[in-house]
Design a protein around this nucleic acid. Structure first.
Length: 239
DNA sequence: GCGACAG
DNA sequence: ATCTTGTCGC
């Protein structure tokens, strides 16, 4: 068993414990972990022609009790039909703190992911990746945990500034924070409020943008996120 | 110091 | 996130 203070550098098993479960005791500790992990995020092009399975992740909270349900769905190209769904119900083990979102939702999400048989080519999270105060949002957290390509799609701005994109679907503008481009503000439907795309891990902004556009042929939100949202709510209603 | 603040 | 009805528009 791992000792709390062996003096060793961030070991892989030590990372795994907190990336997958065991939430840190304090907000300060959580922030320190994000700063430690942020340098491990990689940005690289994703071959969209080779993408046949895309996963979507989302969480829903119970109105009455403190339960939460996470859903992991898998959709197949080219029409993005849902081919598999896995869910998990649990309790939040970390309070909601803007910027520390992943410590609250990632454990349940990864539990749902563990129930999946398929091996998606890329994963889409409801939230941000590099567009984060410490450049380590939920999509990065999930990306390192799975060591797979992951991108984040946010519905409302969090950090950074972006000019409103042109009204046509496909238009986008840079999301800039501290002089850095941390994501894109992307219009997925003509004249409809844009979404915010950012890199989670092992994808680049251009690939992420193009993929989100293809995943959202009809609705504002990409299909994987829409479906995941639907499934976790159903799971909560069911039991 | 003050306000803002993913889901 | 969640509490909440109808309503305007394509």
């Amino acid at each position: 068993m791992r000792t709390p203070d062996s003096g060793a550098p961030a070991g892989a098993d030590e990372r795994a414990d907190t990336l997958f479960g065991d939430p840190p005791a304090t907000a300060e500790a959580a922030e320190a972990l994000q700063e430690r992990w942020a340098p491990l995020v990689r940005q690289e092009p994703l071959d969209l022609a080779g993408v046949s399975l895309v996963a979507g992740l989302d969480v829903a909270y119970s109105p009455g009790d403190d339960r939460l349900a996470a859903a992991a769905v898998v959709l197949a190209a080219p029409d993005w039909t849902v081919v598999e769904t896995a869910t998990a119900v649990s309790r939040p083990r970390f309070p909601y703190v803007p910027g520390l979102f992943a410590f609250r939702e990632a454990p349940a999400l990864l539990e749902a992911v563990a129930g999946l048989r398929a091996e998606p080519d890329v994963w889409v999270c409801d939230g941000f990746g590099l567009a984060h105060p410490r450049r380590f949002g939920l999509a990065c957290h999930i990306g390192l945990a799975l060591d797979r390509p992951v991108l984040g799609v946010g519905k409302t701005p969090f950090i950074g500034r972006a000019e409103p994109p042109a009204a046509a679907r496909g238009s986008w503008s840079e999301l800039v924070d501290g002089g850095e481009v941390v994501g894109r503000c992307l219009r997925t439907r003509d004249g409809v409020k844009p979404v915010y795309v950012s890199v989670g891990h092992r994808v680049d902004l251009a690939s992420a943008t193009e993929l989100v556009l293809r995943l959202a042929p009809r609705y504002r939100l990409p299909e994987p996120v829409r479906q995941a949202d639907r499934r976790c709510r159903e799971r909560l209603a069911a039991a």
